[in-house]
């Protein structure tokens, strides 16, 4: 669906079913330079199993218009404004990589509207190599390729695909090369409040779930374990997947996501 946020036409993927604010809502937040399509399969499952799905393209990403947001704080505030346009009350926040930094920051703004947080292939801080940022500024296509060479785990480097016949590296590079990757990376790099926000969530007893990828070279899993410690939860690790976890292991990641979220809804 398209909604207006800050007067900009904004795309929210709803998993193939109309958004219904009264249903338990799962918010799926994409990572740097990507878009809602990294959740294509997971979004459909939630939408067809009694949930409403709210998977935005952040401003200036893929199908959304507007100006790219330059910090995690601005993205979190934007997310809350976007959610408010739908009259949705309580939400489960799920974030991949940068998307989880946004979730951590948005958690404080949402207060008791937040039901849980789920982290995929991420950490509480995401330092980015300055050379990559520079490349993303000067040649986004090459930067996207560099990132995905690191981003995808070994099966995908050898052409694996969870959807038969597809080339996720090809799909990912095309999406990333046309999105404001450099701005996203700078925002990730600058965000230093992740660990503190995670500990605050643990202190108020917010349910959390951490799903890591064994072959993650962008946010190495030892950083993910630290995040889990801060959130006071146990991390679960998916084998044979790299950083692009939602695309690389949609079934395995969905199984853990849905088990956690379902446990809170029944």
């Amino acid at each position: 669906m398209y909604i207006q946020v800050d007067n900009a036409n904004t795309f929210i993927a709803t998993g193939g079913k109309p958004f219904a604010a009264h249903l338990p809502t799962v918010v799926l937040l994409h990572g740097s330079g990507t878009d809602h399509r990294c959740w294509a399969l997971q979004a459909r499952w939630f939408a067809f199993h009694g949930y409403s799905v709210f998977a935005p393209d952040f401003p200036a990403h893929s199908l959304s218009e507007g100006e790219a947001l330059t910090s995690i704080e601005l993205m979190a505030a934007w997310l809350v404004r976007a959610l408010d346009t739908t009259k949705v009350d309580k939400v489960h926040l799920v974030g991949h990589s940068q998307g989880f930094l946004v979730a951590l920051e948005a958690a404080g703004l949402l207060g008791d509207r937040l039901k849980s947080v789920t982290a995929l292939a991420t950490a509480s801080a995401i330092p980015v190599n300055p050379a990559l940022v520079e490349m993303a500024q000067s040649n986004p296509k090459v930067a996207a390729e560099m990132m995905l060479q690191w981003g995808f785990g070994s099966p995908h480097q050898y052409g694996a695909s969870s959807v038969p016949g597809m080339q996720p590296i090809g799909i990912g590079t095309r999406i990333m090369a046309n999105n404001p990757l450099a701005i996203d990376l700078i925002a990730c790099n600058a965000y230093e409040k992740g660990a503190e926000k995670a500990r605050q969530l643990a202190n108020i007893g917010c349910p959390s779930c951490v799903i890591l990828a064994a072959q993650d070279r962008m946010t190495p899993k030892k950083e993910g374990f630290k995040l889990a410690l801060d959130l006071n939860t146990a991390a679960q690790v998916i084998a044979d997947s790299g950083h692009m976890l939602p695309m690389e292991a949609p079934k395995e990641s969905l199984n853990l996501m849905k088990k956690f979220i379902q446990s809170l809804e029944t």
Binding site: S161, Q167, G170
Partner: peptide
């Protein structure tokens, strides 16, 4: 779809630099 056919599909997509 078929797993053997999918290998050929993914291989040709990779060779031509396509999305699928």
């Amino acid at each position: 779809t078929n797993p053997t056919v999918a290998v050929l599909e993914q291989r040709l997509a990779a060779l031509e630099g396509g999305a699928g």
